[in-house]
């Protein structure tokens, strides 16, 4: 390992470990995914530094590009608000997890310390005609059967994902006419839900509409904004043209971002 490579290792190695620890300690799944992307880019650079240029570039393209993108997409769909209860279902899981993982790491390091590694040969002779050509010769001559099996594995995985992600519609989708008839039958929001910002000072979608008595109508704000806690805090100023401050009752009924329960 040359001096430059050692420097790279000591800069990038701790960064990778920090990213992995970020995966362990991050509260939000999005932050964990970004930490994971950092680790993957770091590992890709390590591969390139170790003369495995093709594998390194594929690592950055496939992992930090495609796979992490897929993870972020699922986090976006599943929602970042899905809170996990901190109550342990298995007693002592946290303690035993730490103990077992530290044992695993310690045992592996102890075992590695006992191994007499040979003097590194280097890849100069193995990929004399270039990294990609040498790898292609290896894959398409000796490993060609594994390569074909992997191709069929990918096709099967795609089909499995399609089957799993497909949702059969059990009942036909309600039409607009049926929805309107249902509203009239239940006598709720017969004229539709109030739009946000009506009679309020702003007409942005995060400002609740005001009812005739001046109280904000929480139902008018999109529930996504309520779940994120991104609604504008009421009371508003200047609701009353006479200039009287809004009463305390309006402040009590303010939407405070606790609408996550009605998300389902």
């Amino acid at each position: 390992m040359s001096g430059g490579e050692a420097l790279l290792f000591w800069v990038l190695g701790p960064t990778c470990v920090l990213g992995a620890l970020g995966l362990l300690f991050a509260r939000k799944a999005v932050h964990a995914a970004m930490a994971m992307a950092l680790v993957m880019v770091g590992l890709g650079i390590f591969y390139i530094a170790q003369y495995a240029e093709f594998v390194g570039i594929i690592q950055i393209f496939v992992y930090s590009g495609a796979v992490m993108m897929l993870f972020l997409f699922v986090i976006m769909t599943v929602g970042t608000e899905s809170s996990i209860s901190p109550i342990e279902t298995i007693s002592g899981q946290r303690v035993w997890g730490w103990i077992l993982s530290l044992l695993l790491g310690g045992l592996a390091v102890y075992g590695l310390g006992k191994v007499a590694f040979p003097e590194p040969v280097g890849l100069g002779a193995a990929q004399a005609e270039g990294s990609v050509t040498a790898l292609a010769r290896e894959i398409f001559s000796r490993q060609v059967f594994s390569f074909e099996v992997l191709g069929s594995l990918l096709v099967i995985a795609v089909m499995g994902a399609m089957v799993l992600a497909h949702r059969e519609r059990l009942v036909p989708r309600a039409t607009q006419r049926e929805l309107a008839a249902d509203r009239v039958r239940r006598n709720t929001f017969v004229a539709g839900k109030p739009a946000p910002g009506i009679y309020a000072r702003h007409n942005a979608s995060d400002v609740p509409a005001l009812l005739p008595d001046g109280t904000p109508a929480e139902v008018s704000v999109p529930r996504t904004l309520v779940a994120r806690g991104q609604t504008v805090p009421v009371p508003y100023r200047g609701v009353d043209p006479a200039g009287t401050p809004p009463d305390a009752e309006a402040a009590d009924t303010a939407p405070t971002g606790t609408g996550a329960g009605e998300q389902a």
Binding site: V55, V62, A134, L135, A157
Partner: peptide, 25 residues
Amino acid sequence: RMHGNLDGQVYALFVMVVAAAEVVV
């Protein structure tokens, strides 16, 4: 790199492919 043999790189590529399939499913 240690053994001057490309098998490790090939296996790493194959592990990536299997991991991608695993992620999808």
